[in-house]
């Protein structure tokens, strides 16, 4: 902290403030507060296990030692990364809108509101990830590769922020962006192998290499890395890691540059 420049310290201070505010607001006026952070993922696993495991009798892909072959857990590993992605993009638009009136009256670096909100989401997601890891420990399906779950989440966050930065600026001008993004993300959910394993996707259909397209779709890469680490207990392939890192790095950089170039105009939007 001592080596930070005054401007960086100011930004860090503001990010902390916005993160704290977002976290407080999340369970404001709720009796059980943070309990919900654990209740949500647990019920998700239970419900998905029932619907896909019991009703549809779907067979989940085999895990290393066969201890955790549960469709609910398979789904949940994918869902963690995806919901972080969706939460950050939708959040970015809301967070910028939330501070735009304030920004018309006082100067502060607007990106701190987005980064703070994202940090709060990251804490929330870490709790969900912790629940997952605990379940895996109980089922003794655990290895050091669990670290890749967190690698996947960090990459997801960078990628989501890159898109979120752009969406937030565009949404300040045209409020349809919020709805458009909502529709695209709904479609995206089914294009990413979360509710189905990649192995069910045909290699080719309508002359398109469908499986390759699904597999190399960036959110699918993040989901894949998370699953490799915490479900299959294997080290993700180098090409998958490289592609995911490249997508995350490039998208974040483009979003950041775009946001920085346009964020001064926020105070002039009517």
């Amino acid at each position: 902290m001592l080596t930070l420049s005054p401007a960086a310290r100011k930004s860090a201070n503001l990010i902390y403030h916005f993160a704290q505010r977002e976290s407080k607001a999340r369970y404001k006026r709720s009796l059980l507060g943070w309990f919900w952070s654990f209740a949500n993922p647990l019920t998700t696993v239970a419900v998905y296990s029932f619907v896909f495991g019991v009703v549809y009798r779907a067979t989940p892909p085999a895990t290393e030692n066969g201890n955790a072959e549960n469709f609910g857990l398979f789904l949940f590993t994918g869902l963690i990364s995806w919901s972080l992605f969706v939460g950050i993009i939708n959040g970015c638009m809301g967070w910028l809108q939330g501070v735009s009136d304030l920004r018309k009256k006082i100067y502060f670096p607007t990106e701190t509101a987005l980064l703070g909100g994202a940090a709060s989401n990251a804490v929330q997601t870490s709790l969900e990830a912790l629940v997952l890891v605990v379940i895996m420990v109980v089922l003794s399906n655990i290895s050091w590769t669990v670290l890749f779950l967190f690698v996947a989440l960090i990459l997801t966050m960078a990628f989501g922020l890159g898109i979120g930065f752009i969406a937030a600026i565009m949404n300040a001008r045209y409020r349809d962006i919020l709805y458009l993004v909502g529709v695209l993300l709904n479609v995206g959910f089914f294009l990413v192998p979360i509710v189905y394993p990649l192995s069910l996707v045909p290699d080719e259909k309508w002359g398109l290499p469908v499986r390759t397209l699904v597999e190399w779709n960036p959110p699918a890469l993040f989901v894949g890395i998370a699953r490799d680490g915490v479900y299959f207990l294997q080290v993700p392939s180098l090409s998958r890691l490289a592609a995911a890192t490249a997508w995350a790095g490039v998208t974040f950089t483009i979003g950041w540059v775009y946001f920085r170039a346009r964020s001064m105009e926020i105070s002039e939007e009517p």
């Binding site: 310290r9 100011k10 201070n13 503001l14 403030h17 505010r21 006082i106 100067y107 502060f108």
Partner: peptide, 17 residues
């Protein structure tokens, strides 16, 4: 935000701890 929270927020915007 409450008055107190706003004071902290304002301070953060001015770069004060």
């Amino acid at each position: 935000l409450t008055g107190r929270e706003n004071v902290y927020l304002n301070g953060a915007m001015l770069g004060l701890s």
